[in-house]
Design a protein around this nucleic acid. Structure first.
Lengths: 259, 259
DNA sequence: GAGTGGTCTAGACCACCCT
DNA sequence: GGGTGGTCTAGACCACTCA
C-alpha cells in the first residue's frame, strides 16, 4: 500500500506543494511506476483532509513537469518514459553508409532498440525561403521533399523532413520512396557529391498541436528541433533536414574542438 | 483604452479560455506591449463578471505559455521575449580567451546583448558519482564547484555549475569568486592543461520548480540541459559543466564531420 | 449509474510591494 | 494602509469513461 505521508501545516511549503512533493517522490522511487494510476482527487482530499483545489494544484504541478498525464473521466496516470536514444556525433560516419545502413537505423540498432520508419512521403515542391537560404539556391528552384516518421520500439520519437535540390535528386532514387541501401546520403554521394560535414542547429520548444498528434505526446512534453545542413567537399549544401524529436527520448552528443 | 471584449457563455470555449484568448491576442498585437501591466485580477473579475478562480485560470494559461510574468504584490506583466542567442561551435575558441573574455560574455557581446552574471557561489565538495565518472576521478576525490546564473539584457537565461578537480583548481583563482580575465578555461590552461576539445551532451525537458524560480520562467517553458566535459591535450578531463538554459533563448550550432 | 477529472462560484486569510 | 497576487475552503454543475 502506498504511504502518502501527511502534510504539515507549519511547514514552509504550502500544502499543495507538500502533496506534490510526496507524489513526485513516489514516482521517482518507483512506488508509482509508469502507467500506474494516482489516487483519485476524491481519495487525496479525504486522505489529506484538504479542499479539492489544493489537491488539484498539487497534480497541476506534476502535470507541468510532465510526470503524469490526466485523462478526463479515467484518472491521472504516471507517464511512461520512452527509451532514451543517444545520438553520437559520429552517427553519420561513412562506414555506416558503407554497411548499407541509414543513420537512424544504424544508430537505433546499436542502442538495442527496434527501429522503424513510416508515413514516408516524397514530393517535388517550390523551396521555402528558409530552406532556400540554407541550400544557397534561389527561391525559384525546386526541391525534393522527403518526410517520414521514426519510431523506436513502436513509439514515435521523431518526424523529419529532408529537402534536396532537384538538380541533385532528379532521376535518382532520392525522388523515390525507397532510396536503397545506405539511405539518401549514400545516394547523394552516388550522384557525385562526397559529403564533408554537417551543421546542426539545435533548439527546444513546446510542440504544436499537430506535432503532439503525430508524435503521440500529451501536453507538457517538449520537443527538440534539429536542422541539419549537409555539405559536400566543395562546401556546397546538398541537403537540409528539419527534424522534430520527442525531447525526452534523445540525448545529443557533440564533440567541439577547443581551437 | 484596452478593449477587453466580453465572454460568451454559449461559446464552445470555457470562460477562462476566452479571457486568456482575448488577453493573448492583445499581447500578440501589441496593445499590451512587453513590460506592460495587465489589468489586475480584481479589475478582470469586475469587468467580466466572473469568479476569481476563472480569471486566475486564464492568467495561468498565459503564464504557462511564458507570455506574462506574475509578480507577487505588484501585478502581472507582459514578458519581453528573451533575446535568442546562437551558440556557435567555435565559442570556446582560444582566441576568445586570449582577448580576456569568458565564453558567455564574449558570445553575448558579439550578439549585441548586455550580458551579466550573478549568484556566483564557489564551494569545495565531495564529487557526485555522475561527475566523478566524467572526470575519471574516484568518488573519494574532491572538486571545486562553481555555480552561477547568466542573464542577457537583465533576463535570466541560464544557470551553470562547473566541477573542477581539486587537484587542478587548488590554490588557483578557480577556487575564488573572481577568476580573472578569460574565465576558468584560461586559468585551467595557466595551470598547465592546454584545452584540446569538449564533448557536449544536449537534452531538453520541463524545468523543476526550483529551476522555474531561478530562471524566472512559467510552468510551460522547457529548458535545455547541456553537460560539457573539457579535455586537455593529454585527453584528461579537466572540467565538467552542467548547464540549464531557457530553451527559447538559445539555438545551439554544431559542426559535425561526415568522416 | 458511478466514478473520474474540468470548470465555476463566493467567499476567506495571507504575503508581498509600494507609498 | 491599500493594492497586488498566492493559497485555501466548501460547495456546485458539467463532460467524459467504463461497466
Amino acid at each position: 500500500m502506498l504511504d502518502l505521508g501527511s502534510i504539515d501545516r507549519s511547514d514552509d511549503r504550502p500544502p499543495y506543494r507538500q502533496i506534490a512533493d510526496i507524489l513526485r517522490e513516489h514516482i521517482r522511487q518507483g512506488q508509482l511506476p509508469p502507467g500506474e494510476q494516482l489516487p483519485s482527487e476524491a481519495e487525496l482530499i479525504e486522505y489529506y483532509g484538504v479542499a479539492r483545489m489544493t489537491v488539484r494544484e498539487a497534480i497541476r504541478e506534476l502535470r507541468g513537469e510532465g510526470l503524469v498525464v490526466a485523462m478526463h473521466g479515467k484518472g491521472v496516470f504516471v507517464r511512461s518514459a520512452p527509451p532514451v536514444r543517444r545520438l553520437a556525433s559520429d552517427r553519420f560516419a561513412r562506414r555506416h553508409r558503407k554497411e548499407g545502413k541509414a543513420a537512424f537505423l544504424a544508430e537505433a540498432e546499436t542502442a538495442g532498440h527496434t527501429p522503424s520508419v513510416d508515413q514516408i512521403r516524397v514530393t517535388n515542391e517550390m523551396v521555402s525561403p528558409e530552406v532556400a537560404e540554407r541550400l544557397k539556391i534561389t527561391r525559384r528552384d525546386r526541391v525534393i521533399v522527403r518526410s517520414r516518421r521514426y519510431l523506436a520500439d513502436g513509439q514515435p520519437v521523431e518526424v523529419a523532413t529532408s529537402y534536396i535540390p532537384e538538380k541533385i535528386a532528379k532521376g535518382t532514387p532520392i525522388a523515390e520512396v525507397d532510396t536503397g541501401p545506405g539511405g539518401i546520403y549514400a545516394r547523394i554521394e552516388d550522384a557525385g557529391h562526397q559529403l564533408a560535414h554537417f551543421t546542426e542547429e539545435v533548439s527546444a520548444r513546446m510542440p504544436t498541436p499537430e506535432e503532439r498528434k503525430v508524435l503521440d505526446i500529451g501536453a507538457g512534453i517538449p520537443v527538440m528541433t534539429l536542422v541539419r545542413t549537409a555539405y559536400d567537399t566543395d562546401d556546397v549544401p546538398v541537403e537540409v533536414c528539419d527534424t522534430v524529436k520527442v525531447a525526452r527520448a534523445y540525448v545529443l552528443e557533440y564533440d567541439v574542438p577547443a581551437m
